[in-house]
Design a protein around this nucleic acid. Structure first.
Length: 103
DNA sequence: AGTATGACATAGC
DNA sequence: AGCTATGCCATAC
Protein backbone atom coordinates (compact mmCIF):
# COMPACT_ATOMS: atom_id res chain seq x y z
CA UNK A 1 0.00 0.00 0.00
CA UNK A 2 1.05 3.49 -0.63
CA UNK A 3 1.78 6.43 1.53
CA UNK A 4 -1.69 7.81 0.90
CA UNK A 5 -3.49 5.12 2.86
CA UNK A 6 -1.29 5.62 5.91
CA UNK A 7 -1.94 9.34 5.64
CA UNK A 8 -5.70 8.84 5.61
CA UNK A 9 -5.58 6.32 8.44
CA UNK A 10 -3.51 8.72 10.55
CA UNK A 11 -6.13 11.41 10.15
CA UNK A 12 -8.99 9.03 10.94
CA UNK A 13 -7.24 7.99 14.15
CA UNK A 14 -7.04 11.66 15.14
CA UNK A 15 -10.80 12.10 14.90
CA UNK A 16 -11.98 12.79 18.48
CA UNK A 17 -14.90 10.79 19.95
CA UNK A 18 -18.34 12.18 19.25
CA UNK A 19 -17.11 13.73 16.01
CA UNK A 20 -17.20 12.58 12.39
CA UNK A 21 -15.30 13.56 9.26
CA UNK A 22 -16.13 13.34 5.57
CA UNK A 23 -13.96 11.66 2.95
CA UNK A 24 -13.50 15.00 1.26
CA UNK A 25 -12.15 16.61 4.39
CA UNK A 26 -9.82 13.70 5.08
CA UNK A 27 -8.51 14.00 1.53
CA UNK A 28 -8.18 17.74 1.96
CA UNK A 29 -6.17 17.40 5.17
CA UNK A 30 -4.14 14.62 3.56
CA UNK A 31 -2.83 17.17 1.10
CA UNK A 32 -4.95 16.43 -1.97
CA UNK A 33 -8.62 17.54 -2.06
CA UNK A 34 -9.18 15.07 -4.90
CA UNK A 35 -8.28 12.03 -2.81
CA UNK A 36 -11.89 11.57 -1.69
CA UNK A 37 -12.22 8.36 -3.68
CA UNK A 38 -8.88 7.02 -2.57
CA UNK A 39 -9.86 7.89 1.00
CA UNK A 40 -12.87 5.64 0.72
CA UNK A 41 -10.74 2.86 -0.68
CA UNK A 42 -8.29 3.41 2.17
CA UNK A 43 -11.14 2.71 4.58
CA UNK A 44 -11.83 -0.47 2.67
CA UNK A 45 -8.34 -1.62 3.55
CA UNK A 46 -8.27 0.08 6.94
CA UNK A 47 -6.95 -2.01 9.88
CA UNK A 48 -8.92 -2.55 13.10
CA UNK A 49 -7.13 0.31 14.86
CA UNK A 50 -8.76 2.77 12.48
CA UNK A 51 -12.18 4.04 13.64
CA UNK A 52 -13.65 3.93 10.17
CA UNK A 53 -17.11 4.29 11.75
CA UNK A 54 -16.29 7.95 12.33
CA UNK A 55 -15.83 8.46 8.61
CA UNK A 56 -18.92 9.33 6.59
CA UNK A 57 -19.67 10.68 3.15
CA UNK A 58 -20.76 14.24 2.54
CA UNK A 59 -24.39 13.17 3.08
CA UNK A 60 -23.67 12.37 6.71
CA UNK A 61 -24.20 8.65 6.28
CA UNK A 62 -22.23 5.53 5.41
CA UNK A 63 -21.71 4.42 1.85
CA UNK A 64 -24.03 1.91 0.24
CA UNK A 65 -21.17 -0.59 0.04
CA UNK A 66 -21.15 -0.84 3.83
CA UNK A 67 -22.90 -3.92 5.10
CA UNK A 68 -26.39 -3.30 6.55
CA UNK A 69 -25.16 -4.78 9.81
CA UNK A 70 -22.12 -2.55 9.82
CA UNK A 71 -24.40 0.36 9.11
CA UNK A 72 -26.44 -0.34 12.22
CA UNK A 73 -23.26 -0.78 14.26
CA UNK A 74 -21.96 2.46 12.85
CA UNK A 75 -25.01 4.40 13.99
CA UNK A 76 -24.95 2.70 17.38
CA UNK A 77 -21.28 3.54 17.96
CA UNK A 78 -21.75 7.17 17.01
CA UNK A 79 -24.87 7.57 19.15
CA UNK A 80 -22.95 6.00 22.03
CA UNK A 81 -20.22 8.61 21.56
CA UNK A 82 -22.75 11.42 21.64
CA UNK A 83 -23.21 12.05 17.94
CA UNK A 84 -26.63 13.47 17.16
CA UNK A 85 -28.62 11.79 14.40
CA UNK A 86 -31.38 13.11 12.19
CA UNK A 87 -34.79 11.45 11.64
CA UNK A 88 -33.67 10.34 8.19
CA UNK A 89 -30.82 8.35 9.71
CA UNK A 90 -28.05 10.72 8.73
CA UNK A 91 -25.52 12.32 11.08
CA UNK A 92 -26.06 15.93 12.06
CA UNK A 93 -22.90 17.20 10.42
CA UNK A 94 -23.61 20.71 11.64
CA UNK A 95 -23.08 19.43 15.18
CA UNK A 96 -20.86 16.37 14.83
CA UNK A 97 -18.55 17.29 11.97
CA UNK A 98 -14.91 17.41 13.02
CA UNK A 99 -13.36 20.86 12.73
CA UNK A 100 -9.97 19.51 11.69
CA UNK A 101 -6.60 18.21 12.97
CA UNK A 102 -5.20 21.68 13.49
CA UNK A 103 -7.93 22.75 15.88
C1' DA B 1 2.65 -0.89 -18.62
C1' DG B 2 -2.14 -0.36 -19.47
C1' DT B 3 -6.83 -0.99 -18.30
C1' DA B 4 -10.64 -1.35 -15.03
C1' DT B 5 -12.79 -0.31 -10.68
C1' DG B 6 -13.91 2.38 -6.51
C1' DA B 7 -16.54 3.03 1.35
C1' DC B 8 -16.49 10.33 -3.11
C1' DA B 9 -17.36 15.10 -4.65
C1' DT B 10 -18.92 18.72 -7.54
C1' DA B 11 -21.34 20.68 -11.34
C1' DG B 12 -25.06 20.80 -14.63
C1' DC B 13 -29.82 19.88 -16.06
C1' DA C 1 -34.95 20.42 -5.19
C1' DG C 2 -33.54 16.02 -6.85
C1' DC C 3 -31.23 13.26 -10.29
C1' DT C 4 -27.68 12.42 -13.96
C1' DA C 5 -23.25 12.98 -15.83
C1' DT C 6 -18.27 13.93 -15.37
C1' DG C 7 -13.85 14.50 -12.97
C1' DC C 8 -9.81 12.97 -10.30
C1' DC C 9 -6.41 10.13 -7.69
C1' DA C 10 -4.85 5.79 -6.09
C1' DT C 11 -5.00 0.64 -5.96
C1' DA C 12 -5.71 -3.92 -8.09
C1' DC C 13 -5.71 -7.16 -11.94
Amino acid sequence: MGQTFAQIWALVRQIPPGRVATYGQLARWAGNPRLARAAGYAMHAAPADVPCHRVVNRLGGLSDAFSPEGRATHRMLLEMEGVRFRPDGTVDLEHALWEGPSV
